Amino acid sequence: MIQIAVFSDVHGNLPALEAVLADIGKRGIRQKFCLGDLVDFAPWGNEVIEKIRTLNIPCLMGNHDERIAFDIPVIPLSKHSEEETEARFIAIYHSKKDITEVNKRFLSELPFHLKLNYKVGKKHWNVQLMHSSLASNDMYLYESENDDVFIHMLEESQSDIVVMGHTHLSFKKDFKTKGWAVNCGSVGRSKEENRLASYLILTLDEEQVIPEIVQIVYPVEETVRGIEESGIPDYYAAFLKNEKISAF
């Protein structure tokens, strides 16, 4: 049996990342992978990057990482309220100023996809990791998406399981003989009602793949305080506290 942990969308939330890494460590899981979006919306972007670098955790390039690494302009999104649009511009501009050149270079060199192959007994398992999809790191694929979209991704990547993040909403879809599609949720900016830090454990044995979404408590008040004491809009503190804010 092999176990791997996959997490995504830390978004500068160091207390949440540390809680997730501690939980993974307590379980004795040594294989760890990150699907990207290390920066924006909480004040520890540099510290998060440096922890991923120091621990040598393989990490993909999320859309926020790409924007900060290459100074890509921020474009308003139609799904955002006027309040969130304004907050988003300020928060991302804060990262563009705050992230060090060394860390921007690290982000610029991250891979786009990562395909893993594990051998358990006589069985080989192919695991496709991506930030949001095979074609883009900025495509929103929710659980409600047509099953054919995920089945095509499994077939295109020739994988037994595809794992993604980006939407900040976890799900598991079992397509039986065709494989699994899993979203591991978000470590640092969950959009789920409980706002807990979320990650995925994959258990591989000779017979099957078992995906488990793990959601854990972290000191959200520490993150809230950090946001309120930084140049990041309080919008993101209210979001983590699950207070009433404009639709996201």
Rank of each mutant, 00 (worst) to 15 (best):
I4H: 06
I4L: 15
I4S: 00
V6N: 02
F7P: 07
H11T: 07
H11D: 10
H11M: 07
G12L: 11
L14V: 02
V20T: 00
A22D: 14
Q31I: 13
C34E: 06
G36P: 08
G36F: 01
G36I: 01
D37T: 02
P43F: 01
N46P: 06
I52G: 04
R53L: 12
C59D: 04
C59T: 15
C59W: 00
L60V: 11
L60Y: 02
M61P: 06
G62T: 11
N63M: 07
N63L: 12
H64F: 08
H64P: 07
I68Y: 09
A69L: 06
F70H: 14
P73Q: 10
P76R: 04
P76N: 07
K79T: 15
H80C: 12
S81I: 06
E82T: 14
E86P: 08
A87V: 06
R88F: 10
I92D: 01
Y93N: 15
D98Q: 13
R105P: 00
F106Y: 14
E109L: 15
P111L: 03
F112P: 00
F112M: 12
L114T: 02
L116T: 10
K119F: 02
G121E: 08
H124W: 05
W125T: 05
N126W: 01
V127M: 01
H131L: 08
S133C: 10
L134W: 04
D138V: 08
D138T: 05
M139N: 14
Y142K: 08
E143R: 11
E143K: 10
E145N: 11
N146K: 11
D147T: 03
D147K: 08
V149Y: 11
I151M: 05
H152M: 12
E155K: 13
E156G: 01
E156H: 09
S157Q: 04
S159L: 03
I161Q: 01
V162H: 00
V162Q: 00
M164T: 12
L169I: 11
S170G: 03
S170W: 00
F175Q: 04
K176R: 11
N183E: 13
V187P: 06
S190R: 06
S190G: 03
K191E: 12
E193R: 09
L196C: 04
A197R: 01
S198N: 13
Y199E: 09
L202S: 02
L204C: 04
L204Q: 01
D205M: 07
D205E: 08
E206H: 12
E206K: 13
E207G: 12
Q208F: 00
Q208M: 05
P211C: 09
E212V: 12
I213S: 02
V220S: 10
E222C: 04
T223Y: 01
E228A: 10
E228L: 15
E229W: 08
E229S: 15
E229T: 15
S230Y: 08
I232A: 05
I232R: 13
Y236N: 00
A237H: 01
A238C: 12
L240N: 04
K241F: 03
I245S: 05
I245N: 01
I245K: 09
